[in-house]
Amino acid sequence: MKKNNRFIIETKSLTKKYDGKAVLDNLNLAVAEGEIFGFLGHNGAGKTTTVNILTTLLVPTSGSAEICGFDTVKGSMEVKKSIGYLPENVKFYDNLTASENLEYFAKLSGIKNSKEKVTEVLEFIEFTGIEHKKLGEFSKGMRQRIGIAQAIMHEPKVLFLDEPTSGLDPMGIKKLREVILKLNREKRMTIFMNTHLLSEVAKVCTTIGVLNHGKLVYKETLENMLKRFSDEESLEDIYFTIGE
């Protein structure tokens, strides 16, 4: 972990209980600016709950979380201004065209020249010529790219992606990966990515964290991790070793 960076995402003893059952249990997590953080864990480990708290959608039972130094509960409005979010399975409004969908969210994000911005962002993610098509005609992969466009239009400091590759074909996954790397490189965006796919993590992430039953069991840069587990055969084995 680079020492000179301040933490842009930080949680302190973050706990979320549903009906008395802890889904997140004293989670302490810190992500530095400029990182691509891969948040790993099996289904039901609490990844989406974490992202929901970090994006202000849920209020923690105890503990706290900060984005860019703002508390996600007390400073939720400031947090919202600093983040972009792509939830899993977002479909948008089928009856509106791609640009109508994007313009709406651009306005809600406080962007003034929404039309120009939409054109600009679609060019950035290299997805043009579809502006006037209705979303109803789009494939899952195409919707996902509109989702990315929506999430980065207002140039947030942190981008949250919840299982971004789920349901995409290999070509779609490749394109998404390119966009993520480009955003990190060119816009210095910090990216927080939920996933259970190790292959993805290895290709894009700079740091990984592993969540197991609501607890962070491991956090390390990819580089160090590969050093430590050099004798292991694959990332998958590493994951299982940590997960146990």
């Binding site: 202000t56 939830p87 977002v90 969210f105």
Partner: peptide, 13 residues
């Protein structure tokens, strides 16, 4: 159903 709700709720409004 469109999944737009989390997006709306995470906008600074």
């Amino acid at each position: 159903k469109s999944g737009a709700l989390p997006l709306l709720l995470t906008r600074p409004i």
